[in-house]
Lab assay of single mutants.
Amino acid sequence: KWEEIAERLREEFNINPEEAREAVEKAGGNEEEARRIVKK
């Protein structure tokens, strides 16, 4: 599940997989929260 979210974030925000994974981890697997983290 987290991998899927990280993949979507990576494609959408054009970030590297590591950044995407970190955002999802910080968000506890919550996609909306992960998006907010990435946008900062």
Rank of each mutant, 00 (worst) to 15 (best):
E4N: 08
K39H: 09
L9I: 11
E11F: 08
N30S: 11
G28M: 15
A6T: 08
R10F: 06
N14A: 07
E32T: 10
V38Y: 00
V24M: 06
R36E: 11
I5C: 03
A23H: 03
E32A: 12
K26S: 12
E31L: 15
W2N: 07
A34L: 01
I37P: 00
P17W: 15
N30H: 08
A6I: 15
N14E: 13
E31V: 09
R21I: 13
G29A: 03
E18N: 11
E19D: 13
E19M: 12
A6H: 04
V38G: 04
E33W: 01
I5N: 01
K40N: 15
E22W: 06
R36K: 13
W2F: 10
A20M: 02
I37A: 09
E11A: 10
A34I: 02
E31Q: 07
P17D: 10
A34K: 00
G28V: 09
V38L: 12
N30V: 11
R8L: 09
E25Y: 05
N30L: 08
E7G: 11
R35M: 04
R21H: 10
I37F: 01
P17C: 15
A27L: 01
A27N: 01
K40T: 14
I37Y: 02
F13L: 14
K1M: 13
A6K: 05
E11H: 10
R36L: 10
R10K: 14
W2T: 06
I5W: 02
K39Q: 14
W2Y: 08
N14D: 13
V24L: 12
K39Y: 02
L9W: 01
A23M: 06
E25P: 00
A23K: 01
G29W: 04
R21A: 13
E4L: 08
I15D: 07
E31P: 07
P17G: 14
E32P: 08
E18A: 09
G28L: 14
R8P: 00
R10D: 06
I5M: 11
K40A: 15
F13I: 06
E18Q: 11
R10L: 11
N14V: 05
K40M: 12
G28S: 11
A6W: 07
A34Q: 01
N14S: 10
E25T: 12
G29D: 02
E32V: 10
A20W: 03
E25R: 15
